[in-house]
Lab assay of single mutants.
Amino acid sequence: TEVDLHLGDITIKLKDVSEEIVKRAKELFKNGWSAEFVKKWIEEAVK
């Protein structure tokens, strides 16, 4: 499945990412993480 994760003005296309990771990524962004950091976190999380 593909998900578009909207973080501010940046959209990250996610492939084969669990709902849990998407939820967590949104929380991290809301908590002040930059979109770049969230993207890196996701990449690490799906390895």
Rank of each mutant, 00 (worst) to 15 (best):
E44W: 15
E27F: 12
G32K: 02
H6C: 07
D16G: 15
K39C: 10
H6F: 07
W33S: 08
I10V: 12
T1M: 14
K30T: 12
E20Y: 13
I10Q: 07
T1V: 13
K23W: 13
L14W: 05
T1Y: 12
E20W: 15
I10E: 10
T1I: 12
N31Q: 14
K30E: 11
W41D: 00
S34E: 04
K30G: 09
I42R: 00
W41Q: 00
D16L: 05
K15L: 11
K30V: 11
G8C: 04
E27L: 14
G32A: 02
E43H: 08
L7N: 02
I12P: 01
V46R: 06
V46C: 07
F29G: 01
A45E: 12
E2G: 07
D16C: 11
E20H: 11
E43R: 05
E43P: 01
F29K: 01
K26C: 10
W41P: 00
H6E: 13
F29H: 04
D9W: 04
V17Q: 02
K15R: 13
I42C: 03
K30N: 14
W41I: 01
K23P: 00
A45H: 10
F37M: 14
D4E: 15
V17E: 01
W41C: 01
K26V: 15
L28N: 01
K39D: 03
V46S: 09
L7M: 07
T11E: 05
K15C: 08
V3W: 08
G8V: 03
K40D: 07
F29V: 04
D4A: 13
W33F: 12
E43S: 08
K47Q: 12
I21M: 08
V22T: 05
F37H: 11
G32S: 02
T1H: 13
D16A: 07
S18Q: 06
S34Q: 04
R24V: 08
F29D: 00
V46T: 10
S34K: 05
I12K: 02
K13L: 13
V17F: 04
S34M: 05
E43Q: 11
I21R: 01
S18A: 12
G32I: 01
E27A: 10
N31H: 13
G32D: 01
S18E: 06
V38S: 00
T11N: 05
E19S: 07
L28G: 03
E43A: 12
V22C: 04
K23A: 15
I12W: 02
V3R: 07
K47C: 10
D16W: 12
A25P: 00
T1W: 14
K40G: 08
E27M: 14
W41K: 00
T11V: 15
D16V: 05
E36I: 08
W41L: 02
K39N: 04
D16M: 06
E44L: 11
N31C: 15
K40P: 00
V46G: 05
D4G: 05
F37V: 08
E36D: 09
L7S: 02
S34A: 08
G8A: 04
E43F: 14
K40N: 11
T11K: 05
E19F: 10
K13N: 11
D16N: 13
E19R: 08
E44V: 07
N31L: 15
S18H: 09
D9Y: 06
I42N: 00
K39S: 10
K23N: 12
I12D: 03
G8N: 05
L5C: 04
V17W: 05
L5W: 04
N31T: 07
V17Y: 05
E27W: 15
K23R: 12
D16E: 08
E43N: 08
A25I: 04
L28M: 13
S18D: 12
K39W: 15
A45Q: 14
E27S: 07
K23E: 13
T1D: 13
W33I: 05
K30R: 15
G32E: 01
K15A: 07
D4F: 11
R24P: 00
E27G: 03
L7I: 07
V46F: 06
I10Y: 11
S34T: 11
V46M: 14
S18L: 08
K47H: 11
K23S: 12
A45F: 09
I12L: 14
F37W: 15
L7P: 01
E44A: 09
K15V: 14
D9A: 11
K15F: 15
A45T: 12
N31W: 14
I42D: 00
D16P: 03
R24Y: 15
W41A: 01
S18K: 08
K40L: 14
F37P: 01
S18P: 14
I21E: 01
E2R: 08
K47F: 07
L7D: 02
K13D: 06
I21V: 07
E36Q: 11
D9N: 13
I10T: 11
F29I: 06
V17R: 01
D4L: 15
G8H: 04
E36G: 07
E43L: 12
E20I: 08
L7W: 06
N31Y: 11
K26G: 06
W33K: 14
E20A: 13
K26L: 15
T1C: 10
T11W: 05
F37D: 11
N31R: 13
E19C: 07
D4I: 15
L5N: 03
E2Y: 14
F29P: 00
H6S: 08
V17I: 08
A25Y: 01
L7G: 01
D9F: 08
K13T: 13
V38I: 13
V17S: 02
R24K: 14
D4Q: 14
V46A: 06
K30P: 01
L14D: 02
T11H: 09
K47Y: 07
E27C: 13
S18V: 05
L7T: 02
V46E: 04
K39V: 13
E19W: 13
I42H: 00
L14E: 01
H6T: 14
E36Y: 08
A35L: 09
T11S: 09
V3H: 11
H6D: 09
I42F: 03
E2W: 15
E43D: 09
H6Q: 13
V38K: 00
A45G: 03
K40A: 14
V22W: 12
I21Y: 04
N31A: 14
K23H: 10
F29L: 06
K13Y: 10
E19D: 14
K39Q: 12
K30D: 13
E27V: 09
V38T: 03
T1Q: 13
E44H: 13
G32W: 03
D4N: 12
G32Y: 02
E2S: 12
K40Y: 12
K26F: 14
W33P: 00
E19L: 11
K15M: 12
V17N: 01
E36T: 07
D9L: 11
V38Q: 00
K23F: 15
T11Q: 06
E20C: 12
